[in-house]
Write a protein that binds this DNA or RNA. Structure first.
Ligand SMILES: [Zn+2]
Ligand SMILES: [Zn+2]
Ligand SMILES: [Zn+2]
Ligand SMILES: [Zn+2]
Lengths: 146, 146
DNA sequence: ATCCAAGTGAGAATGATTCTCACGTAAGCC
DNA sequence: GGCTTACGTGAGAATCATTCTCACTTGGAT
């Protein structure tokens, strides 16, 4: 089973120059197929469906960390104590909206420019901030009714 | 050693009608004395300094949860994997700025009104959001130099 | 083909938080 | 003041996501 060019490109992109092992290839391919946000557990399970020998938890954790470093995945929140990740290679500072029903992820501009300026005016120097919005995506909102 | 009226009022406030045990009184008094954000560990240690028999970790965890329910404490972020709490009885929706050096906590108005409206306009229904800013309070910023 | 640093897997370790359960004691009632 | 009982306590075990250890494998440069 040869790997087509697009898949190969995605796998190389995911690890930004790191080694492409059998496990890493499969993990990147699986992550790219998942829609929206996913937990490490979910990803690991899906990987094991394809190859039971390549989905060790520790390996998936390490692969996700590598893909995060490479800018291929981003942590977009948490659900039930599990970290949520999603494919996000968007450049520039922004935040995420995570649908609590289906996990769909949308981007949001940073709403803090004014808040940070206001804080700076009070003498604070903001060095880091976190903004995460959870809710329902348009489809899930429609399904749930007004 | 009789408890003065103010201290007694604080302790009663902290648990909003729950039982006032020896441990709970001491934990509330200690939490009220701490400035800014603190971790459960720190609070438990300080409690044990005053009364080694009243600072069991589980008890402090439960007392903090009760004080959070009562609206006396609020979770204001996290530091090094430990949840950060601070005294905050301010009514109304708002967020917090936590000094990463000294733990001082400031309030911040919610900057998301427009962001939420923008999301709603796209069909999303935002149900929950988290905003936390970390940085340096005026004093720590001055001490660190420009 | 060789080499070796990077990656893997199984399981142990970590570490914050929560649970269990026998015991203690606030608070309401008489 | 005593009685009752549900709520709180403490010690330690349990949970559970994540990270680490270590012997083994392998990608990929030469
Ligand atoms: Zn959805
Ligand atoms: Zn931002
Ligand atoms: Zn400070
Ligand atoms: Zn807000």
């Amino acid at each position: 089973m040869r790997v087509d060019q697009e898949t190969d490109a995605i796998e190389r992109l995911a690890y930004a120059g790191g080694r492409l092992t059998r496990a890493r290839r499969l993990i990147a391919r699986t992550a790219a197929q998942l829609h929206g946000a996913f937990t490490i557990d979910t990803l690991a399970e899906r990987v094991r469906v394809t190859d039971a020998a390549s989905g060790a938890n520790a390996t998936v954790y390490r692969a996700v960390a590598a893909m995060e470093r490479a800018g291929f995945l981003t942590r977009v929140g948490e659900r039930g104590g599990h970290a949520l990740f999603a494919r996000c290679s968007t450049r520039g500072h922004h935040h995420h909206i995570v649908c609590e029903t289906c996990g769909r992820v949308a981007h949001a501009d940073c709403p803090l420019t004014q808040a940070i300026e206001a804080s700076n005016a009070q003498g604070f120097r903001i060095t880091r901030h976190e903004v995460t919005m959870y809710g329902l995506c348009p489809e899930c909102a429609a399904r749930t009714g007004s």
